[in-house]
Design a protein around this nucleic acid. Structure first.
Length: 1133
RNA sequence: GCUCGGAUGGUGGAACUGGUAGACACGCAGGACUUAAAAUCCUGUUCGCCCUAAAGCGAGUGCGGGUUCGAUUCCCGCUCCGAGUACCA
């Protein structure tokens, strides 16, 4: 029989499914190999021909590795939480779980049709409670971990608590929030539970943080960057604004250095690694403080709100400038005046009955001594600070506003009689009531009511990678969101600043970054001191500075930075040249590092390297700055105000988050009446009825149906009074995909065990050997996955530092749209006449998308077109060869070809250019589809889809089939000994496929298969010794036809997948002659067959004596003869 | 702006470390088979010149230079296309 692909493919797909041919065992003597595809989101549109490109490549690789004797894990599953299903649910009311299920079923059917060798028993779905139980579990582990910089790994939070209990956080080096302050073990032990939790949250690897989001008030929801177009929501076109919101974040920044270092250990495409490097964005530079002028800005607000902590208020410092305060207070402690140290002898260790701290940050400055429990500040004047009665008054005022009393002593007073002073203090404390302290955390606005101006206590910190340009810094620019903006704004400038901030709010971060041509900003009215020149420089705000990068403030060096230059030009600010190599500064900035510095005081005449070093040294000496490694990577926002995602296994008690018990996961996604936010703008989960956390007395065990586990059964008690609110946001799309490759390692039996994947399985499979997917995941999925992997490794759950050893990017398959051209008549109206592409220049036409499925090689299927829409039923055509048309009488159809136009666009329904693999398979079969997608070109290159060459691939398979059959399609192979030529053809392809597969060059092996089959056809080869091996070699590419032939050759059904790949024998390829191209001056003139065993002299002799060559030499002797054995002979005349 | 990738016949592409540019396939043209069509098979097919044809000559891998006996491949400069990114912080 002729090649009956439909029957064959159905038969074998069924066979593989029924026999679980590709079910893989975790116990095998064979070496392991793990081939993984980036798993798909099951969209409603189904698979299009672009999707399988990578899957086919990985399947070929997996099948090839099986033939090479590996135990291959090749699984597939679905990233089934996501926005589209939720969008659809909002529109139709249909539960996302239902649409997702439908879509998955369709995907599965389509995937099955292509003949993939997936182990479907290991399928995962991220939206399955049995799966997301473990996503939640990892979240809990993250919540219960902190990053220890000393050991450079994540550790359980219990370790940290133990340290706190014994020595407070002194000596703890952790990646934590900026605003942690120092406390001792004693302090820790005195803290309330709430207080401790609040502190721990600053260390946890997942924590609450305020982040800026695209908020759409009309939709009541947060939008992704790509859902926002020019400040309006893509859906509905409503205005979008930037809003700050408390959100769950993941401390991925803790891993920045390791994420960066790991890149050099993995075999990924260089551009992809480069993308991650840029995203992580390590820069070595300096933090520099620009201290603020002593202009006090007192709040007009009165008093305090009286809100605060019940217990001791340690958190008295303004978190915005905590870093500076901390350093300065440390420095002050070391530089105490005589009077201060004298007095301290009488106050320390609660000698007067009250605990006194010294050099303690309060608000925005540092108090000499303080008693926190009573709220008394003790100042010794004439010490570190200059006596300045006006400033003292302002400070006293500000402290009073915060609920502090202030008592002042003179230096002399203290030195002459310290004991008397101490007693005076004690007496005052006795008379004071216990204090209630306002927390800065709870109301940052209050911080504004403090006076400025305690020496260096107030400063703007900038990060710069070009500290060498510091003398060129003529102004500072803050992000409009910077915490200090409000404080710095003088009354005169208030209006302007507010207007500008309102204007920026409308712009998305993306817009702000993209616009480099124009700059805008506003002046705050305040000035800062340049840390080296001590000159006053103005402070501006501008939206080209982003709050999330660095410190949200930059020192502007207009001579060296183009944006600063533009800004300086626009607002008429000074531009100071700093290097003798800078050119054309009136035209543009010049960021050169060449030359010697000028106008730069300390570093004049130095080179770049010298200057940077000298400056850092100086800044560190004066305490105004220090060298700093900065990463651009930001902590990842983890919460989504959506329904269709993993619930976060947390509840809130006293405003603080607590994990539910590990035995209580999975926390099942509850049912809601609508998939929209509530009227009050809360996420959809707020709609769930009775969805509150009530700790259960009895520990539940998880039965087969996990859903059951969280609903109450008889006898179990949840006390309603104890019910707490759950976290209402859900996890982002990347949560479920950040660890899924481990779930695949667990066999079906393993999944009953209460672990995400058993140790034994993880130890066996280790990591993914080959990962195939698109480069669009470069900075999302691939970074987060590496992060979670490292985290799981730190806690000892997995063994490998990097999860994906080798990665290949597949290119995108674009759509190729076809167009017909509708004639526009003289009145500008559309007609029903269509002009063939060759004639459109002569007419006025409009292009209409036409379904690519009725166009073949640009020729329109006229009948199909007429039937596609009622209005085309009686369409008139002006064909490509219009002469023929004119000479034909009506009804004749000969030679009518309508040529369509074409364009490359994204593949989408609306462009009528979506090609489903189903149609191709129906017409040509899965083997043809597989080979054709590979034949299309290099895997990693993007290319438009077209079916122009598919006939050739199909013909190849038929030709291949015919090798095993006679002219009447009876199966016929002989046992004759093959000829040398036949062996040669076979071994050429054996080697070629090995080479090509190893370097993922699948397109070239398809061509080589064609050459091989052409050769064997020409040789009329029907010999089993050749053809049986050929079946194995082709099997990874065309599994169905080869299975069928394998059986016909007398082998056992289904054994082909595990057959042994033929051994390449080089002897068959040895040539003793080569047709040398003979070139004269590099130009090939002729070919000569010369034995490969001859020496150079012998070859030269033959060539020079050749008559034909002599005509090119014109009787001259060649100046030089180039001879490369087996390659070329070149005569230089 | 920066970074990365790419540009080869009518089309997809091949040429792996500098060594016969255009393999393989599509399309197209011509032919065979057929009443005809489909299918199949054969021949030709980078362009230009010359030409009945053969043979030959010239040009040619986005453009302009360079290195080399020899460049699609290496170097310098540019153009266009695609992707990523916000650069300096």
């Amino acid at each position: 029989m002729d090649y009956q692909f439909r029957d064959i493919e159905k038969k074998w797909q069924q066979f593989w499914a029924e026999n679980e041919t590709y079910k893989v065992s975790n116990n095998s003597p064979k070496p392991k190999y793990y081939v993984l595809d980036m798993f798909p989101y099951p969209s409603g549109a189904g698979l299009h021909v672009g999707h399988p490109l990578g899957y086919i490549a990985s399947d070929i690789f997996a099948r090839y590795k099986r033939l090479k004797g590996f135990n291959v894990l090749h699984p597939m599953g679905y990233d089934s939480f996501g926005l589209p299903a939720e969008q659809y649910a909002i529109q139709t009311g249909q539960h996302p779980a239902i649409t997702t299920e439908t879509n998955i079923n369709r995907y599965r059917q389509q995937l099955d049709n292509i003949g993939f060798s997936y182990d479907w028993s290991r399928e995962v779905r991220t939206s399955d409670p049995a799966y997301y139980k473990w996503t939640q579990w990892i979240f809990m582990k993250l919540f219960n971990s902190w990053y220890n910089l000393i050991t450079d790994i994540a550790e359980p939070i219990q370790n940290l608590i133990k340290t706190f209990e014994t020595s407070g956080n002194i000596g703890v080096q952790a990646v934590a929030d900026e605003d942690v302050y120092q406390f001792s073990a004693n302090h820790w032990l005195q803290m309330s539970e709430t207080e401790r939790q609040r502190i721990l949250l600053k260390y946890r690897l997942t924590y609450l943080r305020e982040s800026t989001v695209n908020w759409c008030p009309a939709l009541g929801t947060v939008l992704a960057n790509d859902e926002v177009k020019d400040g309006f929501s893509e859906r509905g076109g409503y205005p979008v604004e930037q809003k700050k919101m408390m959100q769950w974040s993941m401390r991925i920044t803790a891993y920045a250095e390791r994420l960066l270092q790991g890149l050099s250990t993995i075999d990924w495409p260089e551009p992809l690694k480069e993308m991650q490097r840029n995203w992580i964005g390590k820069s070595v530079g300096a933090m520099v403080d620009f201290s603020l002028s002593l202009t006090p800005v007192l709040s007009k607000e009165e008093g305090t709100k009286g809100e605060g902590f019940e217990k001791l208020g340690y958190q008295t410092a303004d978190p915005a400038i905590w870093e500076i305060l901390k350093q300065n207070s440390k420095a002050n402690r070391q530089n105490q005046t005589e009077a201060e140290s004298e007095l301290w002898q009488y106050l320390q260790g609660s000698k007067i009955g009250y605990k006194i701290s010294r050099q303690h940050a309060v608000g925005t400055y540092i108090a000499d001594f303080i008693c926190l429990s009573k709220g008394l500040v003790i100042e010794v004047d004439g010490g570190y600070y200059d006596t300045n009665s006006e400033n003292d008054k302002l400070r006293t005022n500000a402290l009073n506003q915060l609920g502090f009393e202030v008592i002042r002593f003179q230096n002399d007073e203290v030195i002459t009689n310290p004991n008397a002073v101490a007693q005076q203090i004690k007496q005052m404390l006795n008379n004071l009531p216990d204090r209630k302290v306002l927390s800065f955390e709870e109301d940052l606005g209050e911080a504004n009511s403090f006076s400025f101006g305690e020496g260096r206590a107030e400063a703007i910190t900038v990060f710069t990678t070009r500290v060498d340009t510091i003398y060129g810094a003529t102004f500072l620019v803050l992000a409009p969101e910077h915490e200090l903006v409000e404080k710095l704004t003088t009354p005169d400038q208030k209006k302007e600043i507010e207007n500008y901030i309102a204007q920026t709010k409308k712009k998305s971060e993306l817009d702000r970054m993209a616009d480099t041509k124009s700059v805008s900003g506003a002046f705050t009215g305040s000035y800062a001191f340049h840390p080296l020149s001590e000159k006053e420089i103005p402070i501006w705000i501008a939206d080209y500075v982003l709050a999330g990068y660095g410190t949200g403030a930059v020192m502007a060096v207009p001579s060296g930075d183009q944006r600063d230059w533009l800004f300086a030009k626009k607002y008429n600010l000074a531009i100071t040249a700093i290097s003798d190599a800078q050119k054309d500064l009136n035209q543009q900035a010049d960021p050169t590092k060449e030359g010697r510095y000028i106008n730069s005081d300390l570093i004049n005449g130095m080179t770049y390297a010298e200057a940077s070093k000298a400056l850092i040294k100086k800044l560190e000496e004066t305490g105004a700055g220090k060298a700093k490694i900065n990463f651009r990577l930001r902590d990842a926002v983890f919460g989504r105000q959506r329904y269709w995602g993993e619930p976060v296994p947390l509840y809130f008690k006293d405003g603080l988050p607590y994990l539910i018990k590990e035995s209580e996961i999975p926390l099942i996604l509850p049912e809601v009446d609508k998939y929209l936010p509530t009227e009050s703008g809360e996420p959809p989960l707020a709609r769930a009825e009775n969805w509150r956390y009530a700790p259960v007395q009895k520990v539940l065990s998880f039965g087969e149906d996990l859903r059951e586990a969280t609903s109450l059964s008889e006898g179990e008690n949840r006390v309603e009074a104890q019910a707490f609110d759950y976290e209402l946001s859900t996890m982002p799309g990347w949560a479920g995909s950040s660890w899924y490759w481990y779930r695949y390692m667990a066999s079906t039996e393993d999944r009953n065990e209460n672990v995400f994947a058993p140790n034994k399985a993880i130890e066996y499979w280790k990591d993914v050997d080959l990962y195939i997917g698109g480069s669009e995941h470069a900075t999302g999925h691939l970074l987060y996955s590496r992060f979670w992997n490292k985290f799981l490794k730190d806690l000892g759950y997995v063994g490998e530092e990097e999860p994906f050893k080798k990665l290949i990017n597949q290119g995108m398959i674009q759509g190729r749209s076809n167009f017909v051209y509708r004639l526009i008549d003289n009145d500008g109206l559309s007609t029903n006449t269509f002009i063939s592409h060759g004639h459109i220049s002569k007419y006025k036409t409009t292009a209409l998308h036409v379904d690519v499925n009725i166009v073949h090689n640009e020729i329109l299927d006229i009948e199909a077109f007429k039937n596609s829409r009622a209005e085309f039923n009686d369409a008139i055509f002006i064909f490509e060869d219009a002469k023929i048309l004119n000479s034909l009488s009506k009804g004749e159809s000969r030679g009518e070809t309508y040529i369509c136009g074409h364009e490359v666009e994204k593949m989408s329904k609306s462009k009528f250019n979506v090609v489903s693999p189903d149609d191709i398979i129906e017409k040509y079969g899965a083997d043809t589809l597989r080979m054709y997608e590979m034949f299309l070109g290099p895997l990693e290159q993007s290319k438009p889809w077209n079916t122009n060459g598919i006939e050739g691939v199909f013909k190849f398979l038929r030709k291949f089939w015919k090798l095993y059959h006679d002219d009447d399609f009876n199966f016929r192979v002989s046992d004759d000994e093959p000829t040398k030529a036949e062996y040669k053809a076979l071994h050429k392809i054996i080697r070629k496929v090995e080479e090509d597969v190893e370097r993922f060059s699948f397109n070239t092996s398809v061509s080589s298969f064609m050459i091989c089959v052409n050769e064997l056809t020409d040789l009329k080869c029907h010999k089993k010794k050749i053809l049986q091996q050929l079946v194995i070699v082709l099997h990874p590419y065309a599994p169905h036809i080869t299975e069928e032939l394998w059986t016909l050759l007398g082998n056992k059904d289904g054994t082909l997948s595990f057959a042994e790949y033929p051994k390449f024998i080089s002897e068959y390829l040895v040539e003793n002659e080569f047709a040398y191209p003979i070139s004269v001056n590099g130009k090939t003139r002729m070919n000569l067959n010369i034995s490969l065993s001859l020496t150079q002299a012998e070859v030269e002799n033959i060539v020079l004596n050749n008559e034909h060559i002599q005509t090119y030499l014109d009787g001259k002797n060649p100046r030089k003869i180039i001879f490369v054995k087996g390659k070329i002979v070149n005569l230089v005349v």
